[in-house]
Design a protein around this nucleic acid. Sequence first.
DNA 1: GCAAGGTC
Length: 973
Amino acid sequence: MKVLCVAEKPSIAKSITEILSGGRWDTRNSPHPYIRNYDFDYNLPPPLGRGRGTSFTVTAVLGHLMSSDFGEDHRKWHSCDPFALFDAPILTSVSKDLKQVEQNLINEARHSEILMIWTDCDREGEHIGSEVASVCRKVNRNIIVKRARFSAIIAAQIHQAARQANELDQRQADAVEARMALDLRIGAVFTRFMTMGLQVRVPELAEQLISYGPCQFPTLGFVVDQYNRVQSFVPEIFGYIYVGIERTDEEGEVRTVEFKWRRNHLFDMDIAAILYEQCAINPDARVLKVETKPTTKWKPLPLTTVELQQSGSRLLRMAPKRVLDIAEKLYQKGILSYPRTETDQYDRAFDFNSLIQKQTYDTQWGQYAQRLLDGAYQGPRNGKKNDKAHPPIHPTSHAGNLEGDERRVFELVTRRFLASCSKNAEGKTTTVEINIADEFFHTGGLVITQRNYLEVYPYDKWSDSALPDFQEGEMFTPTVIELKEGSTSKPSLLTEADLVGLMDKNGIGTDATIAEHIAKIIERQYVLEKQEQKIKYLVPSQLGVGLIEGYNKIDFDRSLSKPHLRRETEHRMQLVCDGLKVKREILDQTIEEYKEVFIKAKRDFDIVIESVNEYLHGRGEAQEALRAATQARRGRGGANRGGRGGRGGGAGAAPRRGAQDDDEDSDEDDAGPPRGGGRGRARAPARGTSTRGRGSGGGTANATTGSARKRNHDNSNGPQDGGKTCDCDMPAVSRTVQKADSPHVGRQFWTCSKPQAEQCGYFEWADEGGNTSKSGTSGPSRRQPPAKRQRPISRNDNHENDDDEVRCKCDLEARFGTVNKEGPNKGKQFWACPNNPKASCGFFQWAEDGPGSGSGPQAGPSNYAGRSYSRNSNNASGGGGGTSGDCFKCGQAGHWSNACPNDSASGGARGGPSRAGSGGGAQSGECFRCGQIGHWSNSCPNDGPGGPSAPTARGGKGRGGARGRSRGRARGR
DNA sequence: GCAAGGTC
């Protein structure tokens, strides 16, 4: 009796042979150079075998045997309308280059009684198995087909798989067949249609192939989406209080301990300034809590293909495809395990010991490997993925003679493997919380107690940052308290690693094909690689943006550039696998849907052509620049502001919106301003409003821009529902913030009406819409220029006429209070958000500066506040001369404060007392120590002992002067 | 000249 075993690839055939044969087998060549046939006897018990002496031959194929294409009638591009390809017959045959593989199967099957399928244990494996079966049955109709199922190359499993071989799962094979047919039909229809359509209409593309694929287009879509986020980003300025103290640490070195504000940062500079004032006036800090806790830095999970590509791209700066190609090569050399795996957990019976042993010979990590064997070993963590076919990627032997990129990939995999067999790193964190004038600040330190896996895995960074001694209840005066300014950080373009992650998360491609899809959209010139220092970013070409934007303008139920369609296909395949649908049903249904999409695309293809033409010919670019500039103006920012704070703006930089945040499934009603890039945009109208509000001179550039924006989104012809129009020129919809723990819960906002993944990003608070009433009634007032308002908090604008009612941004009745603290503001009355500090919207307003009070001069309690709104004081004194571009420091237009030419430590022109004095703006120039004008508090002549030049630990005078906002050095006053 | 999924 002869059993023919067929694996999906030669390596598995060999592994199976090694196990089943007990180490004794004969080898024969096959007609194909890569494939060998292994013969041995095996003890296969009845009913399947005859016990001892059952003759086994193990061989393999090379993945799928068959390929499919249209028949002659439809194969030529101009032979038919692309639409016909939806229904044209598909012919399936063995690929030319696999004829020898087929021949080998034929030769072997002729003399076999049982065909045992050993392909990978997944859908594709099931389909490959069915191809093998069909080839073998052609020459041996009576051959019994069995399926051996195994999830790892482990002796026990392999023996069990042989003895308990069961049936092929035709449903899984059917599901794959459906996927193949759909991919071919849809790809061919749209590729031919687009290529032939664009080649004749766009001269630059006359020779170019414009392909569409259900994986490549969503991949391009991710790149374009992120590019648009970057383009439309408007930085937003915020303020935060920085507290630092110089202390001597245990080693006797003086170092500055920086404390972070619990509020992190506030976008309302007024509030930040006021809170800062309070700290500056009463800078005594009390240590509330000193807490030391153990902490762990987790060792990495076992390595999957996707993770290998991502970390290879990030850490080794290699293209994902190259990383995978090298891993493949090392696998073929027998140095690495099979590199295409989704599994991030090892089988219980996995033999770590011998694999670690092999690494003890290495000059770099050999000693570490030996320590693992000597007792430092700890079993790897278990991830959540298991493809039931392959273990995580690991080194299978030691290779000391590799060079270049091969060496680097091998080193990464090996270090990762050894790290995953190590203990987690351990440390102790110390948190110190302090309180200054009712504001809370904290700092933290870390002492690493056991580096463990970090010793062999230098890619992870974790470093000591011990804190000097602090005691609970201790009082001290910080060396420095500053009000600093930061800005939200521009999101980055996607890196290849980012894109791999997005595709994996959204089910686009498989671990083995993700890198190919990325390479393909680069090859098709939809995407370009852009090197910036050491990082390579992906930027869409004009063609890429033109295509995606063009298709986005067509009103598809399901966008061709989003991942939904592919996800839907996956879902339907699962239905077939589960027996809930049959192949024919999902084929018919999906093809009907794509026919509709095609008809619509064909009808509106002029839109795509126009879009591609615009982008290719520069007009699109110009529109883009215009759009970005418009949004920047809306947001009060100028082009120069973009660089301010910049990325990684220290403690003040807001986290960027990374690609990882691109969560298609996020709660639509979890409103509030969009994160990151969207945030600046969403808040922009509010800021514009605030600037207008303060500008008593009126007619400022901002006011004009602001009203233009309002008009842009006010659809006066539009219906009923408030008449807002989003950025895709669709009627916007009104929604309400639902999230219970949001400070904006219950608040209404306008947003794009499309499904979340397709939204244009338009966002506007209903109550900040200037003239749009809450009830949504449209009226003539909407077309009027925005009313001048005194305060930036537009929520109150809805209550402008309610003299008695001041409401905060959470729409709560504001708390009325009086400043009790000693200082220039003592006795002043104010309104503030009544919510607890965690939920507070940050609303604060001096009572005499409330709604209806048109008084300009009382702009704020301090010279800071005055300076921060220098444009307003200009307006007040100069009568409408203000622009949106005034420098905070000197008040002049044409530059921003961070590039202020008048900003020098000694220069009188900087925003300070001298300017305030000369401008007559006493309100912005008073010293908050003595209340007099003409000097800052840190050089207050009335400051008792120490006087004007009371030293600061850093020579504060010069530094304090150099920075417009950092006048408040606690010791300097 | 189309797709995506296996494999070498």
